[in-house]
Design a protein around this nucleic acid. Structure first.
Length: 411
DNA sequence: TCTGATGATTAGTT
DNA sequence: AACTAATCATCAGA
């Protein structure tokens, strides 16, 4: 982009100031000659109006020649030539011609309307860095938000606060590197802009450079530097993502549900063994009671069903235990099956609980679940599975809740 | 340290 | 979309 601009690319780095050889800008200079030669009315440049037109042309030719060869000279030579050119008696005339040509060709305005809207990718990166607490004022809100989100969804216990502080310190490290680099880029951008502006100002003594062009040049430089900034922001985002996945990945930070939560879930599961598929409402209710999310409830039931099915025998004792609890709860008129008898551990006679389940009536007039008695020592309650599927699997009535529908099995 | 338990994830199925 | 089955990653007790 830079090299397309007639007023740029004079190679500020080559230190020669007026290096113009092979530059597009030379078209303008060449056209000076043509313009002056073909001017029909003599114009107001006064070139044709001199006493001797031929001499004038030769003068201009000399100047152009000097300009053309200026880049082939040493720095000192070039500076001296430049000074001589600036003092040349024809310089004002040449300058005004350049101005005129520029105005006529609209050179300065070419591509002037290339203002781009703000890069949406950059906006996204900015938003993300802001949300993560990397950009913007330091408040640790991003980290705190991330931590709290992970905690609420993963049932994370407070004892992981140690890791949280580790996370925060790492995040602040990223933040500090990010700001240092950003500052460096901004400083470099400012320096370079100042440098180019000085060059252009100096050049404006030799050729017409409008303030608008300088502005455009500055904008171009800023765009270039902002693309570097985008890369920095991208890298920072990646670093934050990696950090997050390492420290806050719920899977890595798995915590067992509380004992009480597991009891609530188990109670529901075993009291709905014929159809352990809680409705959305029931899941929400269970989630509320257990202090976990609905999707965690779904996960739990998914895992429970498959593990129960795979090894019914292993779960029989547990099933009998919860059946007993449910029975006791029902007998005491307790309408909440989720407040189990806290002493409900250990050795109950299992016959009672088994009866509870063996006597399960068909749900909504459906079939009686096929009984698969295991050869375990206890009376089996693994009645619900036939051909590897739960019988009559269907969603409970929409109004079903852990409170309301447990009775379907327990009586 | 080993091993079973368990919550989460994922690909495939209904 | 909800579910199953397999698998992963971690926890927790022996």
């Amino acid at each position: 982009m830079l090299q397309q601009q007639p007023l740029t690319g004079n190679g500020p780095s080559n230190g020669r100031g007026l290096g113009m050889s092979g530059h597009p800008g030379m078209h303008a200079l060449n056209s000076v000659r043509q313009a002056s030669q073909h001017r029909p009315d003599g114009g107001d440049s006064g070139l044709e109006g001199t006493e001797n037109g031929h001499e004038t042309r030769r003068d201009i030719g000399d100047i152009l020649q000097q300009i053309m060869t200026i880049t082939d000279q040493s720095l000192d030579e070039a500076q001296a030539k430049k000074h001589a050119l600036n003092c040349h008696r024809m310089k004002p005339a040449l300058f005004s011609v350049l101005c005129e040509i520029k105005e006529k060709t609209g050179l300065s305005m070419r591509n002037a309307q290339e203002e781009e809207p703000q890069d949406p990718q950059l906006v996204r990166l900015d938003n993300m860095l802001l949300a993560e607490g990397v950009a913007g004022p330091e408040k640790g809100s991003g980290a705190a938000a991330a931590v709290s989100a992970a905690t609420s969804s993963g049932g994370m216990s407070p004892d992981s606060s140690l890791e949280h502080s580790d996370y925060k310190s790492k995040l602040s490290q990223i933040r500090s590197i990010y700001h240092t680099e950003l500052e460096k880029y901004e400083q470099a951008c400012t320096e370079f802009t100042t440098h180019v502006m000085n060059l252009l100002r100096e050049q404006s003594r030799t050729r017409p450079v409008t303030p608008r062009e300088i502005e455009r040049m500055v904008a171009i430089i800023h765009r270039k530097f902002s693309s570097i900034q985008t890369q920095l922001k991208q890298s920072t985002c990646e670093a934050v993502m990696i950090l997050r996945s390492r420290f806050l990945d719920a899977r890595r930070k798995r915590r067992n549900f509380s004992k009480q939560a597991t009891e609530v879930l188990n109670e529901y599961f075993y009291s709905h063994l014929s159809n352990p598929y809680p409705s959305e409402e029931a899941k929400e209710e269970l989630a509320k009671q257990c202090g976990i999310t609905v999707s965690q409830v779904s996960n739990w039931f998914g895992n429970k069903r498959i593990r129960y099915k795979k090894n019914i025998g292993k779960f029989q004792e547990e099933a009998n235990l919860y059946a007993m609890k449910t029975a006791l709860g029902a007998r005491q008129g307790d309408d909440s099956p989720h407040t189990p008898n806290s002493t409900g551990s250990g050795s109950f006679s299992l016959s009672g609980s088994a009866d509870l389940f063996l006597g399960v009536p068909p749900v909504n007039g459906e079939h009686v679940p096929e009984l698969h008695c295991s050869t375990k020592t206890h009376t089996s309650i693994s009645y619900t599975l036939a051909n590897g599927n739960w019988q009559g699997r269907s969603s409970p009535p929409s109004g079903a809740s852990p409170h309301s529908d447990h009775s379907e099995n327990s009586d």
